[in-house]
Write a protein that binds this DNA or RNA. Structure first.
Lengths: 174, 174
DNA sequence: CCGTTCATGTAAGGCGTTACATGATTCC
DNA sequence: GGAATCATGTAACGCCTTACATGAACGG
């Protein structure tokens, strides 16, 4: 799975500009995927050249022009190809956990500070996911699998919040 | 955090060969970090050139030669520099969750198969982490922060196993 | 006999990030 | 007046992966 596969998936439902795609990546997908503008724009250009998508330039008043991209038959085929390929194993990389592993080399207070900052981050993310779930449930816009997707994000975040809180307490009582 | 930082951390405690480092990455760190030989060996070479570590070649009977690396004062300094730098935010990327999000474009049975395969994978990983915890607790070799580290891995894995099981059941009853 | 373990390395390529560049409008 | 939003792009660089190359010994 790379940025191209994800963009093809998004364009199955409707057309998007690069700027709009980025917003979706930041809200719905942020739990398990991310891509910056430095990836999105060049990827869209390449996809257009490969004939997977077509571009339509929209003139706007008081705003910069927009490029709206639409998927082609070739793009559809490419997306099916992705879906039939083997699933890549997930990757998780955490600087915090690595530092925690080497925690004996820093002051206890520093470690606690690290954990508190992370806890705050996780709580924010959890709130975001729950708000997102609420929005979409109200809209009845969600498929069964999308609901599972967001549920996994929420439950994982809750677990992290809980374990981080417990860990901070246990370190403070040391 | 990159491979160099992690290797410097490992070498704080004792000297290692590249091959041994890889084994540690696969067992203890596999939950939140990974590096292949294609990263490890070139990184060790560069670190030696930069004066962070020194190499000692060990002749072995009936085995290939080993290069054992030891950290220098310069390396120590570099590691302290890493520990005092800002913590990078974690990254998580999951092909499975992305496909789940686009689940409406494939057969239900395919989705269930994806989830079952993932569940098996997570169960295996969980068993591995629990065995690891048991080993290290018996040895009393673990610091408080390392215990937190592994606890986070175990609790996260348990949550994943639970939610995946529930999701499979809910899809089967659809 | 065949697979696994031990052991080190190179080369090419993929995929991504950050920083830079531009510039109008709108909200506080 | 300054920050945020809207909007698109490029260039340099970082970091990692996969595949290839080599080869002995040991266990089943």
């Amino acid at each position: 799975m790379n940025a191209q596969d994800v963009i093809l998936g998004m364009l199955q439902k409707r057309s998007y500009s690069g700027y709009e795609l980025k917003h979706y990546f930041e809200s719905v997908f942020s739990f398990f995927f991310d891509a910056s503008f430095g990836t999105i724009y060049p990827t869209l250009s390449r996809m257009e050249q490969l004939g997977y998508i077509t571009k339509e330039s929209i003139q706007q008043d008081n705003r910069p022009n927009k490029n709206i991209y639409t998927i082609t038959d070739r793009g559809q085929e490419q997306f099916r190809l992705y879906l039939s390929s083997g699933i890549e194993k997930q990757t998780f990389r955490s600087d915090l956990l690595m530092r925690l592993y080497f925690g004996e080399f820093v002051e206890r207070d520093v470690v606690i500070k690290w954990l508190q900052d992370e806890l705050q981050e996780r709580e924010k993310k959890l709130a975001q996911l729950e708000a997102d779930k609420f929005c979409n449930e109200a809209d009845k816009n969600m498929t069964a699998t999308q609901r599972i997707c967001i549920q996994i994000g929420i439950e994982s975040s809750r677990t992290m919040v809980r374990v981080l809180s417990e860990s901070i307490t246990s370190l403070e009582n040391l």
